[in-house]
Design a protein around this nucleic acid. Sequence first.
DNA 1: ATGACTGACGATGTCAGA
Length: 278
Amino acid sequence: MLARRLRRSYSASVLVASWNVNSIRARQDLVENWLRDQRPDVVCLQETKVVDDDFPSEMFQRLGYALAVAGQRSYNGVAIASRSGLEDVEIGLWDERPGADRRLIAATVNGVRVFSTYVPNGKSVASPDFAVKLDFLERLRETLARKAAGVPVILCGDFNVALEPEDVYDPIKFEGQLHFHPDERVRLERLLELGLVDAFRIHEKGGGYYSWWDYRGASLRKNEGLRIDYVFLSRDLAERCVSVRIDAAARRLPRPSDHAPVIVQLSGPSAEALQATD
DNA sequence: ATGACTGACGATGTCAGA
């Protein structure tokens, strides 16, 4: 507690996390323990898999988080939790239709526009779902261009795309396959051309760092994973990004999500703007 | 070997995930 007060008082640093939890209800205790341990200021969640009325809101309230949720029955679902308040919550892409999958939510945290997104998996490159995935990435780019131009942005989520060969455990095997097909990588690169930076790559250029490992077989033990969960920062915030880590330990806990959280630490004036006022 | 696990829904299986 003292250390946290000191950090908050003197180092002006905030933690922003993104985590595909693969069902917030199945993961409620694990997430609560993780939040108590890591104390992130802002958390973007994906694959909550629950309608809004059944979201475990009390747990987040108990821990001091304001909450914005966009869920649906069985599948998908995104949320943003913040210890610094949430304003101007918006659900969906800029041209969202009623009944669409719940895959995007945005909220403003002290002047920073925060997005939590769950990009469609695509099923396989040959599937019609792959075209839906490409279309979602394009419309996500349009949404950022229209709704968040010129303001500090944190775009978090499970993008279901590995950007670089270093982001897949076997780039030769994955080339042209789902999660590492040129069409989806180009779509994501175009989105980043709006002026967004992959926070993880600010400080780490090497391979072997992943955010997802298959539940099946020995994927985790052999570190055969994919880095498909990202925190993207607008340039002003990227300049204040002190550290980024993927909390692979959370993937090794009992009954884990198949995704690990990504945690970004920001310092400086923008961080102060994001900071809790407690 | 389009498999292996896991969760939701709601049933003793099917779909989706990545």
